[in-house]
């Protein structure tokens, strides 16, 4: 099943399919290891519901839902 990272539920895990962001945001995502094939697990939401915290490539990354909305995922579990 495909969906965007911002639609993930806590503890849901998936593989990155495609990055739809542009420019600075795209570059930044790549630099942080968010590239096609990378495994991401949604760890938690901030108290106000946004941003989100994910585990990727063995470390903790936080990003906003706006940005997560540009990361297309293949749900694994």
């Amino acid at each position: 099943m495909e969906k965007y990272l911002n639609e993930f539920l806590v503890n849901e895990e998936g593989k990155v399919k495609k990055i739809e962001a542009e420019g600075k945001i795209k570059r930044r995502l790549f630099d942080m290891g968010v590239t096609p094939g990378a495994n991401i697990r949604l760890k938690k939401l901030a108290p106000l519901g946004d941003p989100i915290e994910v585990t990727i490539r063995g470390y903790e990354l936080t990003l906003r839902k706006d940005e997560a909305n540009k990361i297309l995922m293949e749900v694994v579990k």
Binding site: K24, R28, M32, L61, T62, L63, R64, E67
Partner: peptide, 12 residues
């Protein structure tokens, strides 16, 4: 127009 991105490591 661009909001600075917020993509940040949460270090141990």
């Amino acid at each position: 127009k661009e909001v600075p991105p917020f993509i940040m490591e949460l270090p141990a």
